[in-house]
Nucleic acid binder design. Structure first.
Lengths: 334, 334
DNA sequence: TCTGGGTATGCAAAGGTTTGCAGTGGCAAG
DNA sequence: CTTGCCACTGCAAACCTTTGCATACCCAGA
């Protein structure tokens, strides 16, 4: 039903190759012919079939972007930045969501391959070896993870976690809980490593709780546990969990930050809207999205330049952290 | 570099058509041959090229989903539901974001055409005539808008707006402000129409403010204006704006709901997290996403069944609404 | 008049797959 | 031994473009 290049050629009395050139190399065709072809194309509603074109040229001008959970407000700024960067180079971004499921992740890479020129793999939960294997099928740039041999862009969450723990111990907290992220998360491991080291340095106790769902609910669910172990401060894997935790503690009657201080990670826009406003580690998500697109597109086929970009993070102190309570610790007496 | 069907055929000593059938019609090939082909394919890392396949079959098994703003928490539940519905039918969803820009919207439809079997157009800002025109290029299902001749799924926002206004007038409010949505939004027009009618019925005054950006900032920006006109209640185009407005009023020293009552629309998960918790009109976004996918896929080429689905909405009363203040109205004295 | 260069267009192969049709061989029924 | 069916496989066209090469023409220079 939709018009093909052949219909336009017939209608304008030229060969299909001329029609093709009218669109992809206009300078090669006589201005007069060109305008006639254009008129016919317009009239027939012709649009070049991008799939067929890609079959020849090997370029789809599309980029796939796979995220773990599109409902997590961490991702939209990254997505938007990537889209904007892509648009400037005449590319389009196709976003898909994996529901935090590694199997879906793998399937999506296969589905996207050949329909895109490359895939931005954001916060993957797959194993490194699987990622490497998939990268032979379609160019990959990994975000929020380091995989040897593959281009990647990560935020320096280790530094962020260190700053957060130092902030807390500096406020006098001696027992910090760490709400871990989901299984398979590189970021979660990094945070844990750095937080553990920072706590040791400050001679404070650190208790790891998790793995958890990186959602509001994942935070709420640990409120009881946080109170039980008597931690006076918490570093959460992300803001969503931190916010959930505040809610959970609130319904247990525990006040933040008077009784428990909480630090999130990401600095999603929501963290400025809650009461108390959230102290958090700001991640440059927009820069990450842009950088990933650049890395994918820059070195066309020159895939040897597997740069690893690390972006700086920053501690943003708001209202959810305060001095450690002076009284006896909040252990539950049973 | 990546293996093609031809490579597999050569390696396993059969014709390419046999390889093709091994994947797309396994019952037609000898089990022995099949396993040999499968082994070779596995060994070579062969995956059918979906773009080439689509060229023949006319089916890509992809669906495009265009949303106005991926950062708006209204969309993720819809996206997730659509993805889930699609996955059950062996389809994939590609999401793209338009930044509320009609021009980008149009461009994206063109870009997606031929790479997907249909497009879900969510909260479009384009003109109806343009949408109709685009629907000749690729099957379209419109969400949050009614376009004659096209399948669509909408939420009954008119009913929701009516309930909201009745709720407010029932609390004694005589002057309600309506924070309009973005230009080109069908939903915004519907809300305005219904709210105006409901206010008239209750013999209350209704002032329309806008159009506005449908974001938190769009709400904050109208706080001053809301106070100036002396409205004691506000119905906002969506929750994000309602939340922004609460923030804005807060920084002006106006308390919610004691001095001004606020109702949002959408019931995004965030509306349960703010203080005060938001009274809002719940939209069945998940059901909308599922319905849209169903409509697109159900009647394959039978596009005459241009059903228009309307989903019910519901008023959720929380803490941001209360009785109208009894004192004199809050007009600014200059 | 011939040569050379440039411009505009046509030709046909190529890209990776699907699929209707035709062909092969084996086997059971007659 | 023939016939017919069946299961399997090969052949080649088709899908819609792009692109290297060839062709045709025109015009200027010698």
């Amino acid at each position: 039903m939709p018009a093909t290049i052949r219909d336009v050629a017939r209608a304008s009395g030229v060969h299909i190759s001329t029609v093709s050139r009218t669109f992809s190399a206009p300078h090669l065709v006589n201005p007069e012919t060109r305008s006639r072809v254009l008129a016919c194309a317009e009239h027939l509603g012709y649009r070049p079939n991008r799939a067929a074109r890609a079959l020849i040229t090997g370029r789809t001008h599309n980029i796939g972007l796979i995220v773990a959970d599109i409902a997590n407000p961490f991702f939209p700024p990254l997505i938007k930045a990537a889209e904007s960067a892509a648009r400037h180079r005449d590319y389009h971004i196709f976003v898909t969501d994996t529901n935090e499921d590694p199997a879906v992740e793998e399937e999506l890479v296969h589905a996207l391959a050949k329909q895109v020129d490359g895939v931005l793999l954001c916060s993957p939960r797959m194993s490194n070896s699987l990622i490497e294997q998939l990268s032979r099928e379609v160019p990959l740039v990994v975000i929020n993870r380091q995989v040897t041999g593959l281009p990647s862009v990560v935020m320096d969450v280790a530094q962020g976690a260190r700053l957060a723990v130092e902030h807390l111990t500096g406020l006098g907290h001696r027992h910090v809980a760490l709400l871990g992220g989901p299984r398979g998360s590189w970021t979660s491991r990094e945070i844990r490593r750095a937080a553990t080291a920072a706590a040791r340095t400050a001679d404070a106790e650190l208790t790891v709780l998790g793995p958890n769902q990186p959602t509001e609910h994942g935070g709420t669910a640990q409120a009881e546990q946080v109170r039980r172990i008597g931690a006076t401060a918490v570093l959460a894997y992300n803001d969503l969990m931190a916010i959930g935790l505040i809610e959970g503690l609130d319904s247990l009657g525990v006040r933040v930050p008077e009784e428990v201080s909480i630090v999130g990670i990401d600095d999603i826009s929501l963290s400025r809207l809650t009461r108390p406003k959230l102290t958090t580690v700001a991640n440059p998500t927009g820069a990450a999205g842009r950088a990933a697109v650049d890395m994918l597109l820059q070195h066309g086929d020159d895939r040897r330049t597997t740069a690893q970009v690390t972006l700086q993070t920053e501690l943003v102190i708001r209202d959810s952290t305060g001095p450690a309570p002076t009284g006896k610790p909040h252990t539950v007496k049973e």
